[in-house]
Computed example of a mutant assay.
Amino acid sequence: MAVDTTGTLPVVDGSVAEVFIRDWHEWHRRHTAVLADPHGFLAVTGLHWLTSEPQRLPGAPGEWSTGAEGVEVTLDADEELVVDGAVVRGRYVFGVIPERGGINAAWGDAVIEVAKRGGHDIVRPRHPDHPLRAEYAGTPTFPPHPRWAVAGRYVPFDHPRPTTVGAAVEGLQHVYHAPGRIEFEIDGQALSLTAFEGRTPGSLSVLFTDVTSGVTTYAANRALALDAPDPDGRVVLDFNRATNLPCAYTDFATCPLPPAENRLPVAIEAGEKIPYERG
């Protein structure tokens, strides 16, 4: 194999490149299916911030409020929800929801999401027939290319660093614990990204912007999931798999913004582009 002088992984060709591209298409098909799920983010019809004052919410049954016992709903006599497989009626207390946690309650063919974001209790109804979901035609992407599978090195911090970042909702903040940073090169330029914990033990996640942000890619953020580093700290940043967060599609998301140091001064022409819905 020839070695690409840009600092990416070895260049591949022939059948190896075909496998790389086929694997990418399969990954993106699965990613798109999750987004277009009947109760995925494209189905969200509203973002409602709860207070101590009971209120009826569009697209959801009952009156909702939050207080010392956490989130609660009072349903009318002809209303019901299904929570954890059990039918509930009348007054129901969801309890205190942990930060970034949530509970989904079924209501007919809809789901009522009860969650906490940035220290605030919220309700987001999710209806499969929402036009944003019903008319979803996929997300445009750059063509996948092995050039953008970049070799990196994970450098753990002595202790995880609490990192406060902004959010897609003005005035909201999120706090994440950053276990370390990832160092890498593109076209000979030394770069790094602060990493957050991923969805599975040992895995990592990065939020970033770059020179394409607001031009061909979504302005606020993109996300990249990484497998756990190997024993020597080696990781691969496959920017072909950089994805939009839900806020790229809907104003009803509270997505985090990248930390300031994750604004890359290079153009990452890989991964998902600005959604058609924002074009």
Rank of each mutant, 00 (worst) to 15 (best):
D4P: 02
D4N: 14
T5V: 10
G7P: 03
T8H: 11
P10W: 07
D13E: 15
F20G: 10
R22W: 04
H25M: 12
H31F: 10
A36L: 01
P38L: 08
H39K: 09
G40F: 00
V44E: 13
H48G: 01
W49R: 11
P58Q: 07
E63Y: 02
E72N: 04
A77S: 15
E79D: 03
E79H: 02
L81G: 05
V82D: 09
D84L: 09
G85D: 10
A86L: 11
P98T: 08
G101P: 07
G102M: 09
I103P: 07
A106R: 15
I112E: 07
G118Y: 06
H120W: 09
D121R: 03
P125A: 00
P128F: 03
D129W: 08
A134Q: 14
R147S: 04
A149C: 06
T164H: 12
A167L: 05
A168K: 02
E170C: 00
E170S: 13
Q173S: 14
P179E: 08
R181E: 15
I182D: 06
F184M: 01
E185N: 06
D187M: 04
D187K: 08
L191C: 04
T194I: 14
T194L: 15
A195T: 13
A195V: 12
E197W: 05
E197I: 08
G198N: 09
S203T: 15
V206D: 04
L207C: 05
V211M: 11
S213G: 09
G214M: 05
V215L: 14
T217F: 05
Y218S: 07
A219V: 13
N221P: 03
R222C: 01
A223G: 13
L224V: 08
A225Y: 14
L226I: 10
P229H: 12
D232G: 11
G233N: 09
F239K: 01
A242M: 07
N244A: 09
C247K: 03
C247Q: 00
T250R: 08
F252K: 10
F252D: 15
C255Q: 01
P256Y: 01
L257N: 00
L257H: 03
L257S: 02
P258D: 03
N262S: 02
R263A: 11
E272D: 02
I274D: 09
R278F: 10
